[in-house]
Computed example of a mutant assay.
Amino acid sequence: MFRMFVSSVIVATAIAAASAASATVITPVGVTASSEWGIWGPTHYRGINVINGSGLEAGLHDGDFNNMWLTWEGTSATLDFDLGADYQLTGINIWNYNSDIELERGAQDFVLSVSLDGVGYSQILAGSLSMGTGGLIPAESFALDGLARYVRLDILNNHGGAWVGLSEVNFTAVPEPAALPLLGAGVGLLGLSLRRRRA
């Protein structure tokens, strides 16, 4: 009976470990844009729109420009994200600028760099984005492998037009910061239980 119990606990621990190791979506707690339009209202084309979920539903982003970010000037820009804690990043999801007013404003080529202190950054990705459609669009996802608290997205150019923008950005990471201590405590209690039983 006890062996069955131990086996069950081991299986449960393995499931918990697998769950802790599965990727989870990370929404940044802050973002700073090198430029933002923002002259028509407190949220219109602001940088915050790329992390607040506005216009995003069931993984698809709409074509309403009020839910997007756009530069005040220029076709290159930088977005600095604060993840709120250190994460082992496994991916980034980017929804490009998607207003049919001028789809060419969408970002095209970009580089991504990570940092633990917000000062020194290391590049871990270079990529390109497709132009939006003006309808509901899914994210374009890119694999990452880097430990970071801060992430810098440097947009190098757009698909045409005088400005550049995005709709939404989030990240995936594994494990969550609190997952490993909890998992370690569970394994420790299991070991203690087995040791007491043998004694």
Rank of each mutant, 00 (worst) to 15 (best):
I94K: 00
G59T: 10
G74E: 00
N170Y: 02
L192Q: 11
I94D: 06
L60G: 00
L83Y: 12
A21H: 04
S19Y: 03
A185M: 12
D145K: 15
A23K: 13
Y45L: 12
I48F: 02
E102N: 14
Y150P: 09
V169F: 04
A173P: 05
T172E: 12
A85C: 04
Y97H: 06
M68C: 10
I48W: 01
Q88S: 10
A17F: 12
A199K: 12
E140M: 12
D154W: 00
F171C: 09
S19F: 09
E102R: 11
A85E: 11
F81A: 07
E104L: 05
H61Y: 00
R197T: 08
D80N: 14
N170D: 15
W69P: 00
Y45T: 02
G59L: 01
R46K: 14
Q108L: 09
G41F: 06
D109L: 03
E104A: 09
G59S: 11
L144D: 03
R149W: 07
G118T: 12
G74P: 03
P28H: 08
A199Y: 11
Y45C: 02
L147D: 01
R149G: 04
T133W: 12
S122T: 15
E102M: 12
V187P: 00
A85K: 03
N67G: 13
S34V: 09
T24R: 14
G53C: 01
L183C: 13
G55L: 11
E168Y: 13
A199C: 09
E73M: 08
L70N: 04
G53S: 04
T90M: 00
Q108V: 08
